Each structure stands twice: as C-alpha cells, then as structure tokens.
Computed example of a mutant assay.
Amino acid sequence: MNGGWVYIVTNKRDGTLYVGVTADIFRRASEHHDGTYSGFSKRYGLKRLVFTERHEEIESAIARETRIKKWPRAWKVRLIHEMNPDWDDLYETLNY
C-alpha cells in the first residue's frame, strides 16, 4: 500500500461533516463529487472536499480517521479552518 489519506467532505460551509479514509484520494473525491459514493455522504449530499491529510502508511491514516471521528464537532471545524478557512472545494485542486 502506498499510504493513505484522511479527508472531510461537507455539503456547505459549516454544514454536515463526513470524515473518511482512503488509499486513493483522487478516486474517492470523484465518487463523492459525482454522488456515486453510497451511504451517509450520498444521503446528505456531501460533495465538497474541504480537508485532506496525507499519511505515509495507510494504518496511520486509519488511526487518525478513527481519532478525528471521536472528536467534538468544534474540533473538526477548527481543523478545517486551519487548512481551508474559506471551506473551498479542494476537489478542483487535486492533481490528476
């Protein structure tokens, strides 16, 4: 495995948040963006990629995702604001 990514998608600024982990951020971001990733994110229209964090090992990405999911919402919002204060959709900035 070539590492992994922790990411957060939302439907709008300060909207509903979904924290996920993937080995392929490009594919997963496309799935969210196109609305083809089923489950919670599809049900709530969470298409805007607002946070990404690269990890060298997939295991560390999974551990980080698990920790972040347990955080209070305010901590997650602060994490997004630190990296992406305008809650821009980072999907457009991924290098394919």
Rank of each mutant, 00 (worst) to 15 (best):
N2R: 13
G3R: 13
G4N: 02
V6S: 05
Y7M: 08
T10I: 00
T10D: 05
K12L: 04
T16L: 13
L17Q: 06
Y18S: 02
V19G: 06
V21F: 00
T22W: 00
T22M: 00
F26L: 13
E31D: 09
H32I: 10
H33I: 04
D34V: 14
T36Y: 03
T36V: 07
Y37K: 13
G39E: 05
G39T: 14
F40Y: 14
F40W: 12
R43P: 11
Y44P: 09
Y44F: 15
G45C: 12
K47A: 10
R48A: 03
R48F: 06
T52G: 01
E53G: 05
E53V: 03
H55C: 04
E57Q: 12
E57D: 13
I58W: 04
E59V: 15
A61I: 04
A61C: 01
I62R: 15
R64T: 03
R67K: 07
R67G: 03
R67L: 11
P72T: 05
P72L: 08
R78F: 03
I80D: 00
M83P: 02
P85Y: 11
P85T: 08
D86V: 12
W87Q: 00
W87P: 00
D88F: 04
D89T: 11
D89G: 14
L94T: 05
L94I: 12
N95Y: 06
N95Q: 14
